[in-house]
């Protein structure tokens, strides 16, 4: 009895109430359980990362090494030239820069337009604001394939088929709902006193929005920008449908075509895939907290 008491008090002082107050045996058991769970989570982490590690390794090999070495053996002489070759010969550089500027332009357009409408919905007084918000939220459930044919014919009619503009406006429209959703939570928490003071001072709504509200939302703007960036960078169906000339293709469709032509050269394929995912991985490395925040705030509050 006394022993139990002692061990109990010790447990409390060492683990700071984190573990349920239990007997020695229970404690041992929970320690084993927590190790088992930790190993389980680690295995899952390996499963999630292993294909990418394998990709990185075979991007540095030639076919002979891919076929003969063990899949997870680092090549003896890494073939970094695979990267140089595909960058210059496979048109990958053009695709890469197209991806960069089309992504950037779409992100800018989306974030601005979404900020305007979120400001009007959350801060201004009008009858239809809930209805308009609902319109954007329902749009999230709409399959893009149900819009493809009309968009195809619309863009052909107005002459922006096979032009980056078709991508930029399509990306912006389809990313508005998620962007508004992320902005919404932040806008609701902005204190009303700020606006009141500004308006009392005779500030116009435009000045209020551009010089006071917009700068205040900088942190959440960064979150929406990075989420938008990931979506646009990775987008495939619209590019595949709207863009036919190599000059305007982005990385996703570009590398798909490239791989179609060089389907037997594993090293080249690995290198192109690595080039297409490195910017995203870098962004994740630097901004992982923002990405996590964007993904959770975009769906948990739904």
């Amino acid at each position: 009895m006394v022993e139990t008491k002692v061990s109990k008090s010790q447990t409390k002082s060492t683990s700071q109430l984190e573990k349920p107050p239990s007997l020695m045996r229970g404690l041992m058991l929970s320690k084993i359980t927590s190790w088992v769970l930790f190993i389980l989570l680690s295995v899952l982490a390996v499963v999630q990362l292993l294909p990418l590690v394998w990709l990185f390794f075979f991007s540095l090999k030639n076919n002979q090494e891919v076929f003969n070495l063990s899949p997870l053996a680092f090549p003896t002489e890494p073939k970094w030239e695979n990267y140089v070759t595909v960058w210059t010969q496979g048109n990958i550089n053009t695709y890469f820069f197209n991806s960069v500027w089309i992504t950037a332009a779409s992100v800018l357009l989306t974030v601005f337009v979404a900020s305007f409408v979120t400001f009007a919905i959350t801060r201004m007084k009008w009858k239809w604001n809930k209805l308009v918000l609902g319109l954007f939220m329902v749009a999230m459930m709409i399959p893009i394939h149900s819009t493809l044919i009309p968009l195809f014919s619309f863009y052909t009619t107005i002459g922006i088929m096979n032009h980056p503009l078709a991508l930029i406006i399509t990306y912006s429209a389809f990313n508005l709902p998620i962007t508004i959703m992320i902005l919404l939570g932040f806008y609701y928490t902005l204190p009303r006193e700020v606006e009141e003071a500004a308006i009392m001072d005779g500030c116009s709504v435009h000045r209020l929005f551009f010089t006071i509200i917009l700068p205040m939302t900088k942190p959440v703007l960064a979150t929406t920008a990075i989420i938008n960036m990931i979506y646009n960078w990775n987008e495939y169906v619209f590019v595949n449908t709207f863009i036919s000339s190599d000059r305007f293709k982005t990385l996703t469709v570009g590398i798909q075509n490239f791989i179609g032509q060089y389907s037997t050269d594993w090293g080249a394929i690995g290198a192109t895939l690595m080039i297409s995912i490195i910017p995203i991985l870098l962004a994740f490395f630097v901004l992982s907290n923002r990405i996590v925040e964007g993904i959770t705030s975009g769906s948990v509050k739904g």
Binding site: Q48, I277, F284, I295
Partner: peptide
């Protein structure tokens, strides 16, 4: 949780 998220960030082509 961040490691688990990595595949989600990659393009479907990749």
């Amino acid at each position: 949780r961040k490691i688990y998220l990595v595949p989600m960030l990659l393009s479907s082509v990749a």
